[in-house]
Design a protein around this nucleic acid. Structure first.
Lengths: 111, 111
DNA sequence: TTCTTTAATCGTATATTTGCGATATAAGAT
DNA sequence: ATCTTATATCGCAAATATACGATTAAAGAA
């Protein structure tokens, strides 16, 4: 890849891409779904629901946390994860601003 | 990776993850933005706007097309790409159904 | 203190993505 | 028929992502 060209794009483009990347795996979608329904889940519960090893689930949780889509606190041998609704609001707004709004103006079909 | 576990998730989870994956790169976000603003852009115009080689842009366009986010027709040495608004509507709805709706019920903050 | 339980991290193998130059293709121009 | 132009595809190198087992860490229980 010679060099990573991602930094050459605008910050907004990078942010939106990172948000999308965090959701770009069915396991992470599934995790988010569980958290959205329950709020306040420990890692073990999620592991039981997914067809993946504990270490793999932990890794996916870490990615979601790094991307800011979830929050988590470690409390000794137990942890607590929740959806960060604010992040979803922000990116949903960003997404709509970039695309859905323009739809109204520009509806013609071409190819 | 031993084996690809992606098929073990539900079809909806996979579809949403694939949609997200298509947007998981700033170059593809930038391409979608250009197409959203103009409708009916040829590849060359997009190449001029991005800090990437022609072959790389063509590859990103192919990925967006394969994911169904854009449509494109080849007309000899010239091509025409457009946003597939229906796909955006579909996935935006899916996304809202999975997450944003639940927000109302489940607002408490924990961690 | 030692044992148990739960989750994070490390190390590693394999798969996929990203990016480019070179080449192929396809249609119009000369 | 050959040249030009615009785009797609091929082949490859490097970077990242995915997944797991093994290990570590941290807190409560015995």
């Amino acid at each position: 890849m010679a060099f990573n060209k991602k930094e050459e794009f605008t910050q907004k483009e990078q942010d939106l891409a990172n948000f999308a990347k965090a959701m770009a795996h069915p396991a992470r979608i599934a995790i988010l779904k569980v958290l959205a329904q329950r709020n306040e889940c420990i890692c073990g519960e999620i592991v039981d629901l997914l067809p993946l090893a504990q270490s793999t689930v932990s890794q996916h949780l870490k990615e979601l946390k790094n991307a800011g889509l979830i929050t988590g606190t470690v409390d000794g041998p137990r942890s607590c994860y929740c959806i960060n609704w604010k992040a979803f609001e922000k990116f949903n707004g960003e997404f709509n601003f970039l695309f859905t709004n323009l739809k109204v103006k520009n509806q013609k079909a071409c190819c």
